[in-house]
């Protein structure tokens, strides 16, 4: 469970969140929606303790691990897809076998038999996004923070993503910042911003 305890955050004179208290429970996908500038991405960053509030506190157990798919969270262009996957998995104490890697690729619709040894700098935006999902699936995180995750995906990619996220939600807290109707439709709960 992620707890927001009287959290406030401002950017200059713009007060984005004021005295927010809420609890986010696991086992479901929670959509965070709102107009541009409403603070969807910032809410996700607060939830993951990536940024600190001006006052109040965000709490979750210290042993819970976070994974993020967001436009500003880049992967290494100079590494191949497999090197990226292995690197991030190793950081979380996992060694991926060749079999694991191919299976991850299949789950996100990225042919790693063909593209596994290609440097990411040669990937299209959609392929990079699929690789980010593969990393997300490989690192065994307890909290997923997904910021407009299917923005660059084709229909097949979106379908793969929806399947993966539905299958994974039962033991995780999944926050999904979006204004996309299809993404909102797969969520179990909606947080509408501003509060």
């Amino acid at each position: 469970m992620i707890t927001f305890d009287d959290v406030s955050l401002s950017f200059g004179r713009h007060e984005l969140f004021k005295n927010i208290s809420l609890e986010l429970r696991g086992g479901k996908i929670i959509a965070v929606t709102g107009a541009n500038g409403a603070g969807k991405s910032t809410f996700l960053k607060l939830a993951g303790k990536i940024i600190r509030p001006d006052s109040g506190e965000v709490k979750f157990p210290a042993d819970k691990k976070i994974a993020v798919v967001a436009p500003e969270m880049k992967i290494y262009d100079n590494l191949t897809a497999i090197e990226n996957l292995k690197f991030f998995a190793e950081l979380r104490g996992k060694n991926l076998s060749a079999e694991n890697i191919l299976e991850l690729g299949e789950r996100v619709g990225l042919n790693l038999e063909t593209f596994g040894n290609v440097r990411v700098e040669n990937f299209s935006t959609g392929m990079r996004q699929r690789l980010k999902f593969a990393i997300l699936l490989s690192v065994d995180a307890d909290i997923w923070l997904l910021d407009e995750p299917t923005a660059n995906l084709d229909d097949a990619g979106r379908e793969k993503f929806f399947q993966a996220i539905q299958a994974a939600k039962f033991d995780k807290i999944i926050l999904l910042a979006t204004n996309d109707r299809a993404e909102v439709d797969i969520c179990d709960e909606i947080i509408q911003l501003p509060f």
Binding site: G48, I50, I66, A67, V68, E72, M73, K74, I75, Y76, D77, F88, L91, R92, V139
Partner: peptide, 16 residues
């Protein structure tokens, strides 16, 4: 500059 530092900081321990 490449935008990978936030990702690295998220997945790896600061001391590492």
């Amino acid at each position: 500059t490449a935008g990978t530092l936030p990702t690295l900081k998220l997945y790896a321990d600061a001391q590492a």
